[in-house]
Structure formats: structure tokens, C-alpha cells
């Protein structure tokens, strides 16, 4: 069997994996809100104590 079959199968499989990932992410609602996550990722996980945070402000 020629290597072309193997290559075709592999490339199409990879494409299908990405396609399924896309469908899955749409279904989970990842495309419903494209704004909030961009803000959310900038928040610090840990709450910084007032004194240190205040000094940087204004």
C-alpha cells in the first residue's frame, strides 16, 4: 500500500479532530460571550492586600 493512503488518512484525521474540537467548543458556549473572558483573565487570583494595592493607584 502506498504511503499516500497513510498520509491522506492522517491528515484528514487531524482535520477531523480539530473540527470536532470546534463543534465541541461552540456547543459548550465558548463563542457566546467573547468579551467577558478577555477581562476575566486579567484579574489576579490572589487578593492583594489594600495597602500595597492602594499605593499603585492614581
Amino acid at each position: 500500500m502506498s504511503v499516500i493512503y497513510l498520509l491522506l488518512t492522517l491528515s484528514i484525521l487531524v482535520a477531523i479532530v480539530f473540527f470536532i474540537a470546534f463543534i465541541y467548543s461552540v456547543k459548550r458556549g465558548q463563542y457566546d460571550d467573547s468579551y467577558t473572558p478577555s477581562v476575566r483573565m486579567l484579574f489576579d487570583d490572589e487578593l492583594v492586600k489594600e495597602s500595597t494595592e492602594k499605593s499603585t493607584k492614581v
Binding site: 457566546d32 460571550d33 467573547s34 467577558t36 477581562v39 476575566r40 484579574f43 487578593l47
Partner: peptide, 22 residues
């Protein structure tokens, strides 16, 4: 967004909260 997603810090009974800004 920040304060509404930290509601559980005000009331631990709330498990989580998520904002959809738009």
C-alpha cells in the same frame, strides 16, 4: 465583572458566579 464573580467571598454559601458582560 470582578466583584460579581467574587460573590462567594461575600457569602460563602454561593458556590460560584459568572458574568456575561455583553
Amino acid at each position: 465583572i470582578w466583584v460579581l464573580e467574587n460573590l462567594h467571598k461575600l457569602k460563602p454559601e454561593i458556590s460560584s458566579s459568572q458574568v456575561n458582560f455583553t
